[in-house]
Measured scan of single mutants.
Amino acid sequence: MGFKLLSKLLVYLTASIMAIASPLAFSVDSSGEYPTVSEIPVGEVRLYQIADGVWSHIATQSFDGAVYPSNGLIVRDGDELLLIDTAWGAKNTAALLAEIEKQIGLPVTRAVSTHFHDDRVGGVDVLRAAGVATYASPSTRRLAEVEGNEIPTHSLEGLSSSGDAVRFGPVELFYPGAAHSTDNLIVYVPSASVLYGGCAIYELSRTSAGNVADADLAEWPTSIERIQQHYPEAQFVIPGHGLPGGLDLLKHTTNVVKAHTNRSVVE
């Protein structure tokens, strides 16, 4: 069995187990497998329904001669939608809004960016022009300005110390501490036991640490421990890039980060 097929099978099995364990909360999309990078042309966006009122959005972007996937989250909030992270750029984010209108038909009224990198804030200006209120932590807003990236308009308070959590509509926002970046936030959907790890969490097929220019490698494993301790009931975990899975993604990420750190020390 090929690795790609095995990865998709694991996603399907995880979703099936969740649907059985929580039949009222989960209505997993039966329309197909989780979209992969090879299936999404740059400039297009796919939506994948995880649970009743919960979707991931998947886009792709060219970077350094390669094409990478990027995940975000959409959560229903009454007759409105909360968006977590842009679709990595203005063109993708405009396509995301169009796809949401086509498939869901509810307005996106608020959006949260989970850290300051372009795959999370690139497209904020498109959201703002569409009347979406954009939010991020003060740290993310400051770092985005320093980096020359787009800056969300509103500040999220109460997320300055490791372990801080605040309720934001249908989700809980959690600051686990520094990891992929010093400002990275985690998003949890309690009604569906869905954990969105953003770039602080890796997919299972990833074996290298990737972009760690703004990471705190020493603190990252401790931050992941905080996530595990705060959300032990999480059933569906979405990484910032690639295929979702279960809580095993947290341990896998820790292993990859520690291996990278150990290699760096040896070198």
Score class of each variant (00 low, 15 high):
4 K>G: 04
8 K>M: 05
9 L>F: 10
12 Y>I: 13
14 T>G: 05
15 A>Q: 15
17 I>M: 05
19 A>Q: 11
20 I>C: 08
23 P>A: 09
27 S>L: 09
29 D>G: 08
30 S>W: 14
30 S>A: 11
31 S>E: 10
34 Y>I: 15
35 P>E: 08
37 V>G: 06
38 S>V: 08
40 I>M: 07
41 P>T: 07
41 P>L: 08
44 E>H: 15
46 R>T: 05
48 Y>W: 10
48 Y>P: 05
53 G>Q: 11
55 W>D: 00
57 H>E: 01
57 H>Y: 04
60 T>I: 06
60 T>S: 08
61 Q>W: 12
65 G>Y: 06
66 A>M: 12
70 S>R: 02
71 N>R: 01
72 G>R: 01
73 L>N: 00
73 L>C: 03
74 I>M: 14
75 V>W: 02
75 V>G: 02
75 V>S: 03
79 D>E: 12
80 E>A: 10
81 L>H: 02
82 L>Q: 04
88 W>S: 01
90 A>S: 13
93 T>K: 00
94 A>N: 14
96 L>H: 02
101 E>Q: 15
101 E>M: 15
102 K>G: 12
102 K>M: 14
105 G>S: 15
109 T>R: 14
109 T>C: 05
114 T>H: 00
123 G>T: 03
124 V>Q: 11
125 D>L: 14
125 D>Q: 11
125 D>F: 12
126 V>W: 09
127 L>Q: 01
128 R>H: 12
129 A>T: 10
131 G>I: 04
131 G>C: 04
132 V>N: 04
134 T>A: 05
137 S>M: 13
138 P>N: 05
138 P>S: 14
141 R>L: 14
144 A>S: 11
147 E>S: 14
148 G>H: 09
148 G>S: 11
153 T>L: 06
153 T>R: 13
154 H>V: 15
157 E>T: 09
161 S>H: 14
162 S>L: 12
163 G>T: 07
165 A>H: 09
165 A>G: 09
166 V>G: 05
168 F>S: 03
168 F>R: 02
169 G>I: 04
169 G>Y: 04
170 P>Y: 04
171 V>A: 07
173 L>T: 02
176 P>V: 01
184 N>H: 02
190 P>Q: 06
192 A>L: 07
192 A>C: 04
192 A>D: 07
192 A>P: 07
194 V>N: 00
195 L>C: 00
196 Y>Q: 00
196 Y>I: 02
199 C>V: 00
200 A>S: 08
203 E>V: 04
205 S>F: 13
206 R>W: 08
208 S>V: 09
209 A>T: 10
209 A>D: 08
210 G>Y: 07
213 A>G: 11
213 A>S: 15
214 D>V: 08
216 D>N: 08
219 E>P: 04
219 E>V: 08
225 E>V: 12
227 I>G: 02
228 Q>E: 12
228 Q>K: 15
229 Q>L: 10
229 Q>F: 14
231 Y>K: 00
232 P>L: 12
234 A>T: 09
238 I>D: 00
238 I>Y: 04
241 H>A: 00
246 G>P: 05
247 L>I: 13
247 L>W: 08
249 L>E: 00
251 K>P: 07
252 H>A: 07
258 K>H: 12
264 S>Q: 15
266 V>F: 12
266 V>K: 11
266 V>S: 14
